[in-house]
Design a protein around this nucleic acid. Structure first.
Length: 338
DNA sequence: AACCAGTCCAACCGCGCTACT
DNA sequence: AAGTAGCGCGGTTGGACTGGT
């Protein structure tokens, strides 16, 4: 069964020869692709239009970047996937010169395993409960040299996996405000260690969320990912997943509650926002994402992350202003601190 | 050297959406 | 409104490659 566009023709399939590549490149360079279904005919190729399109987009385009993914690209993919899920074309838009196919393959062959090795569910980016981690240990045996340079969970945390059952970890996160900033919310000046709800970390009741206000930092470099994620989480999704990958925080933890998010994040969130529509959307989202304290938000950490609730364009624009040209090295500020 | 299993990635497949008739 | 063509996307496949035995 062939493609609909070329089912009547006898078309060649499989790997492309250099001659075919040359024909296609020459044709598109001089004529543009126009209608893909007519490209093979005019270019003298015994391929279907769909195959030509794919070959051009994924391999022959001059702007394509070949070779290994950099650490920064890797982190962009992880961050974007946490928000967007398997929307490879959306993710690849933030990686100039990379195709959705390339990103998808890289995710499936490398990053998935890397996250699993760090005890994270590659689907939800949540911590995998300890009993499941134990079951996965064989499958996740990745050498330390493959650890990403600024992973959310350091290798140390992986190595101390067992001890976490006894000694609760403290998650240290650099404040997005300089320690002497007047914009810094007062609650964060006075509160540096925040108790997480019991189920935030494998039902360990003493898991601590620590907002480290000592580290000064350049707000322009701070990844706004977690801010956006938290502020855009709807009640329905926040009851089941943790888009940050850190363990969900409810309003007791100052992080995901709309009212408290506002002083902390709104400045960045609304920064550069020009469209009234976007503002309305964001307000709407913030209004609806206050977590029901009584209901609890941590019922099922492994449930799939429903990204359909997001306006993806808005998420995109806020998550990666100016494409991927941001310094992600500040992700190093996110670490498990024991 | 030969075989086997695992990995990687280019290419294919099928579906959904949109535009056009 | 219904049918069709074209395109884009995400999931899957198959062959090349690699490392271990």
């Amino acid at each position: 069964m062939g493609h609909r566009c070329c089912s009547k023709q006898k078309v060649k399939r499989g790997l492309w020869s250099p001659e075919e590549d040359e024909k296609l490149v020459k044709y598109i360079a001089t004529h543009g692709h126009g209608s893909w279904s007519s490209v093979p005919k005019f270019a003298g190729l015994k391929r279907c239009g769909k195959s030509c399109r794919l070959r051009w987009l994924n391999y022959l385009r001059p702007e394509l970047k070949r070779g290994c993914f950099s650490a920064v690209e890797e982190q962009v993919i992880i961050d974007a996937h946490r928000i967007l899920g398997n929307r490879w074309s959306q993710i690849s838009k933030h990686l100039p010169g990379r195709t959705d196919n390339e990103v998808k393959n890289f995710w499936n062959s490398r990053l998935k395993k890397k996250l699993m090795a760090q005890g994270l569910d590659p689907k939800t980016h949540n911590l995998i409960p300890s009993h499941q981690r134990a079951a996965n240990k064989v499958a996740c045996n990745i050498s330390p040299s493959n650890q990403q340079p600024f992973s959310i969970i350091s290798q140390d945390s992986k190595m101390k996996d067992v001890s976490m059952e006894i000694n609760p970890p403290i998650l240290t996160l650099a404040s997005p405000y300089p320690s002497n900033s007047s914009a810094q919310p007062s609650m964060l000046q006075t509160t540096t260690s925040l108790p997480l709800p019991s189920s935030c970390y494998d039902n360990n009741p003493s898991f601590i969320w620590n907002v480290n206000t000592q580290n000064s930092y350049d707000s322009s470099l701070f990844p706004c990912v977690s801010s956006i994620e938290n502020s855009l989480v709807s009640p329905s999704s926040s009851t089941s997943v943790n888009p940050t990958g850190f363990g969900l925080l409810d309003e007791d933890c100052f992080w995901s509650c709309g009212n408290i998010v506002e002083p902390f994040e709104a400045a960045r969130l609304f920064e550069g926002m020009r469209s009234q529509d976007q503002e309305n959307q964001l307000n709407k989202i913030c209004d609806t994402q206050i977590v029901d304290k009584n209901k609890g938000v941590h019922d099922n950490m492994d449930a799939p992350f429903d990204t359909s609730i997001y306006d993806l364009e808005l998420v995109d624009s806020k998550l990666f202003p100016g494409s991927m040209c941001r310094d992600l090295s500040s992700m190093g500020d996110l670490s498990w601190n024991f």
